[in-house]
């Protein structure tokens, strides 16, 4: 239960770091969507309910903070979570290269959803503009994904230990 209570707070903190700290680190040249890496991590390693809740909350908060078309990130993150979940059930050997490649594809998939949305809802073709920016972002996300996976795994272990101990302390 404590997981669901803390989820919005930690998600918000993660997104705030994403929109402030990483802007400085990359000199404003590109962005790193840590939230998407976390959604894929959730698809690979968390339980269905915990993972899908995390994807939903992250998407909703990102919509509130930076979204222009509200609801887009909710939908895309839930879809990416389900795809990751499906992949995790089919692929057992998830090495570093697989993780990098999968994140790369997921970032491109998210951009594809944006192209599709603009095309179908507004009749605007944003393909070439997105192509210019998203390849670098997808590569950056892919390169940094294994490091973030290690970080998320450690945080998950810490949280599980703390969650297991907390009833005794209460």
């Amino acid at each position: 239960m404590i997981y669901y209570l803390l989820l919005p707070i930690f998600s918000l903190l993660l997104l705030v770091i994403q929109v402030t700290v990483f802007d400085i680190l990359f000199f404003g040249k590109t962005g790193l969507e840590i939230s998407l890496i976390l959604v894929v991590y959730a698809g690979f390693y968390l339980s269905m309910i915990r993972g899908i809740t995390l994807a939903f909350v992250l998407g909703f908060l990102l919509d509130c903070i930076t979204g222009v078309v509200p609801g887009f990130f909710v939908l895309s993150y839930v879809l990416i979570f389900l795809i990751s979940r499906g992949a995790s059930l089919k692929v057992y050997a998830r090495g570093m290269v697989f993780t990098m490649g999968f994140i790369f594809v997921c970032v491109l998939f998210e951009k594809f959803l944006i192209i599709l949305m603009y095309r179908s809802l507004y009749g605007i073709n944003v393909f070439y503009d997105i192509l210019n920016t998203s390849l670098l972002q997808a590569v950056a996300a892919g390169v940094f994904a294994p490091a973030f996976f290690v970080l998320f795994h450690r945080l998950e272990v810490l949280f599980n230990v703390w969650e297991a101990r907390s009833p005794d302390q209460l």
Partner: peptide, 30 residues
Amino acid sequence: FVVVSLIVFSLNFKSPERMSFFRKIVLEAV
């Protein structure tokens, strides 16, 4: 979750003000 996601997505097109309360709370928390 998929249905709720679709509802959130479509709700924002039909009546964005319905969700604006939650968005304001998030912005304030940020």
